[in-house]
Amino acid sequence: MGKVNFAGVIRDVCLEYVPEALVGDHCLVHVGFALAVIDEAAAAETLRVFAAAGLLEDEAKQSGPDGGESDPQADREGVACWAPPGRPAP
């Protein structure tokens, strides 16, 4: 188990399925299990393609706080903030 920060709410999350997760990584969490570590480079690349096509502002506007979901079943993206000993430090 590890701890994941969802926009300020820290929850215990099972990290068994993401052995590659490091403290500080963003991950996709579903019903208490992290299923994937989010590839920040890929996320930025999609936005870069939009920006290059003139479809985004140069500086993205903050449209609201990240992670506004309240449904415990909802898929969420959060930041791993604690992982069990034995995992490499970031």
């Binding site: 963003h26 989010i38 920040e40 996320a43 930025a44 936005l47 939009f50 096509a53 003139g54 479809l55 985004l56 502002e57 993205a60 506007k61 903050q62 449209s63 609201g64 990240d66 992670g67 993206e77």
Partner: peptide
């Protein structure tokens, strides 16, 4: 994810919809 807000940007949504 660092880019969550960008992926919810209303103005960007409209531009991409227009592009489609």
């Amino acid at each position: 994810m660092k880019h969550l807000s960008e992926y919810r940007d209303a103005e960007a949504m409209r531009r991409i919809a227009d592009h489609i």
